[in-house]
Amino acid sequence: MKEIHKIFITGIGTEVGKTIVSAIFAQALKADYWKPIQCGDLQNSDTKKVSSMIQNEKSRFHPETYRLHHPLSPHAAARLENITLKKEKIQAPSTSNHLIIEGAGGLLVPLSERYTIADLIQTDYKVILVSRHYLGSINHTLLSLNYLKEINIAKIGLIFNGKAQSSTENIIREHCKFPLIGRLNEEDYLNITIIKNYANIWQKTILKWLENQS
């Protein structure tokens, strides 16, 4: 019986490429996709974006647990809509397939006064951290990785988003020692073909990483 993997895609902040990386992983593994919380842009949600970017006969797209209308952090959007986000209600969908789980913003984005996005990461999940290059990204990346270690998450892989910057990437990898899974280039546009190309390029590395984490 094959091992079923749950892979949580998080990032060092907002707009760093989590949705694109989620699509690539879903295509590479023919995995299911689930976004627990969608804040804003409900007509063009991340679930819809991912489903439009991948093409295979196996992936399924599971409904969000919470769909909030305001493009704010989950706790703020929920407050405006008189909703209390309950962590115990956010349960991964039942599936016999691999599951890609996309977070919202970074690890410490609040769900409530008590919980953050990081509290959604279960001990059996593998975690991919997406790091986009900008001034301050080294600090944000290392803080995120250190926090994952603090909460006893060790099955971690890195994705760099942006043109290669050796001085940035080398210092991050020297400090964290986690494997680099792939690089997302600055693309003028994205479509099914481009996502498939990335999936094909990253697939062997993803599978090897998963094998090493088992």
Rank of each mutant, 00 (worst) to 15 (best):
182 G>L: 07
92 A>Y: 06
180 L>A: 02
159 I>W: 10
4 I>A: 03
70 H>L: 13
165 Q>T: 11
71 P>T: 13
137 S>P: 10
58 K>C: 11
74 P>R: 01
205 T>L: 02
10 T>V: 04
207 L>P: 03
171 I>K: 02
148 L>C: 08
187 E>W: 08
35 K>T: 15
210 L>H: 03
202 W>H: 03
85 L>K: 01
208 K>D: 15
52 S>I: 08
141 T>V: 02
125 Y>T: 09
5 H>C: 00
126 K>Q: 12
168 T>L: 11
66 Y>Q: 07
194 I>C: 05
24 I>F: 02
68 L>K: 05
44 N>C: 06
42 L>T: 11
76 A>V: 15
179 P>I: 10
205 T>H: 00
175 H>P: 00
17 G>C: 01
203 Q>E: 13
115 Y>E: 15
197 N>V: 07
140 H>Y: 12
48 K>G: 10
161 N>Q: 12
64 E>R: 14
126 K>M: 10
19 T>R: 07
209 W>M: 00
100 I>S: 02
151 I>S: 07
73 S>D: 12
3 E>C: 02
70 H>A: 15
136 G>F: 05
109 V>H: 07
205 T>E: 06
81 E>W: 03
211 E>P: 00
128 I>T: 06
54 I>Q: 01
130 V>C: 03
126 K>P: 00
30 K>I: 03
62 H>V: 09
92 A>M: 03
185 N>P: 00
33 Y>V: 05
133 H>Q: 02
47 T>V: 14
17 G>Y: 02
66 Y>T: 05
159 I>Y: 04
21 V>R: 00
33 Y>E: 04
38 Q>R: 09
58 K>P: 00
191 N>I: 14
55 Q>S: 14
190 L>N: 05
163 K>S: 12
28 A>S: 11
199 A>R: 02
112 S>G: 01
73 S>A: 15
139 N>A: 08
195 I>M: 06
169 E>N: 13
125 Y>Q: 12
206 I>L: 13
109 V>T: 08
16 V>Q: 06
173 R>I: 11
122 Q>F: 03
63 P>N: 01
54 I>F: 04
77 A>Q: 07
27 Q>N: 03
124 D>W: 02
147 Y>P: 11
130 V>G: 01
133 H>R: 07
189 Y>T: 12
186 E>M: 12
178 F>P: 00
18 K>Q: 13
109 V>S: 10
97 N>C: 02
52 S>M: 07
167 S>N: 06
82 N>G: 13
27 Q>A: 09
186 E>W: 09
170 N>P: 01
130 V>T: 11
49 K>A: 06
186 E>V: 07
163 K>L: 10
75 H>G: 04
